[in-house]
């Protein structure tokens, strides 16, 4: 009995319960759609149909199964998203560092950093595509721009959140700037830095897929548009929808796991103070 109570009392249990509820609701509607539409998979397919389309070995374009096709295109899109993500992280961190070192730079750049967050960068995707003239390059650029802001803003917030006493401690040791940053400022802003990484990981993926839809070629977004236009079975569309949703969510949790590995002290419980 104790075990049962422990399981039903946990947060994970209720999360799973909600997932089950969502699946049931989905299937009820899918059934409804099946009864009333000629091509139910265009509106709402059964989840079993989606799973079938992923696992089936039927070639849908002559040489590839649906799964192979999604994976190949995902590779093209996600690798660019990852490159852009890493570039965005590096630039964001360096900018936060420079802003923290120099008040003048902070004053010049900070309003523009805010602006990047406020203006619809994704809306600019087509023009960036036109400027770079290369779809792979524009995926990288847009993913980098979208990553850049959350990383820079959160890291800067981390530098600013350092307590006055921590500064004074380093001052009393007559530590130099380099020691101040390597021993204190940078390690203490790591949790904030990771907050930025967690926010921007799904954004980088979204951006990369969106850029795909603007132009033909390879990429999840292209495949998605083609499937929507009826160039291939509609299940490819659903495969991509679920795949990108899962990748988006996983990217968020993956960064969380990396953070836990790097900062073992974070999960320790605070003792009474």
């Amino acid at each position: 009995m104790k075990i049962v109570r422990k399981i039903t009392g946990s947060k994970l249990f209720f999360t799973l319960l909600w997932i089950a509820a969502l699946i049931i609701i989905w299937e009820v509607f899918a059934y409804q759609v099946e009864q009333t539409k000629r091509t139910p998979e265009n509106v709402l397919p059964h989840l079993s149909g989606v799973v079938d389309s992923i696992t089936s070995d039927k070639k849908i374009n002559g040489s590839q199964t649906a799964f192979q096709m999604v994976m190949e295109n995902a590779g093209a899109t996600l690798s660019r998203a990852a490159i852009g993500y890493v570039i965005g992280i590096a630039l964001g961190f360096i900018l936060a560092l420079v802003m923290s070192l120099s008040g003048i730079v902070e004053k010049i750049v900070f309003p523009y950093l805010m602006l990047i967050q406020i203006i619809p960068i994704l809306g600019m995707a087509p023009i960036i595509n036109a400027i770079t003239g290369d779809i792979a390059a524009s995926r990288i650029v847009i993913a980098a721009i979208l990553t850049f802001y959350p990383v820079a803003a959160n890291t800067l917030a981390g530098f600013k959140a350092v307590k006055r006493e921590s500064h004074e401690l380093m001052y009393s040791y007559s530590a130099n700037k380099f020691q101040l940053y390597t021993k204190m400022m940078i390690p203490s802003c790591i949790p904030y830095f990771f907050t930025g990484l967690k926010i921007s990981a799904p954004m980088a993926i979204t951006a990369s897929i969106l850029v795909d839809t603007l132009q033909g070629g390879v990429g999840l977004g292209c495949l998605l548009s083609q499937s929507l236009k009826g160039a291939m079975t509609r299940y490819v569309f659903w495969d991509i929808v679920f795949f990108s949703a899962i990748i988006g969510i996983l990217s968020f949790y993956l960064i969380g796991i990396i953070e836990k590995l790097l900062c073992p002290y974070k999960k320790l419980e605070q003792k009474g103070r």
Partner: peptide, 8 residues
């Protein structure tokens, strides 16, 4: 939040 709006 993590679902790409492009898929949604």
């Amino acid at each position: 939040n993590a679902i790409p709006i492009v898929a949604l």
